[in-house]
Amino acid sequence: MEIIISNSNGIPIYEQIKNQLKNKILNNELKEGELLPSIRSLARDLKCSVITTKNAYEELEKEGFVITVPAKGIYVATINKDLVKERQLTKIEELLKEVLILAKTCDIKQKDIIEILEILSKEDIND
């Protein structure tokens, strides 16, 4: 498994860990029921503090991506991928609505927005 942490992109480290693990779970690189590294070993290997990895796992647990089995470890939870996708779509819809509202206020055309989106998707999106 590979996790890449940037110290300069301004995103808190726990969030970077969380997002990357989440992606790996969603695209099946990490499979249901798979044992994840412990809070302490992940902190050691990523060279960050224990509280950072603990936060990352706690948030993943809250969002239902992992489960902690006391005295055993942290496992990838059984997740309903369609449901997750559905939720993401709703979120995208909401964000796009905001974009449209903003565009309307200063008379920016839909075609321009689509163009921006195309340019952005060609660039590397760093999460």
Partner: peptide, 8 residues
């Protein structure tokens, strides 16, 4: 304080 809180 936690280091995370300070830095983030």
């Amino acid at each position: 304080k936690t280091c995370d809180e300070l830095l983030n």
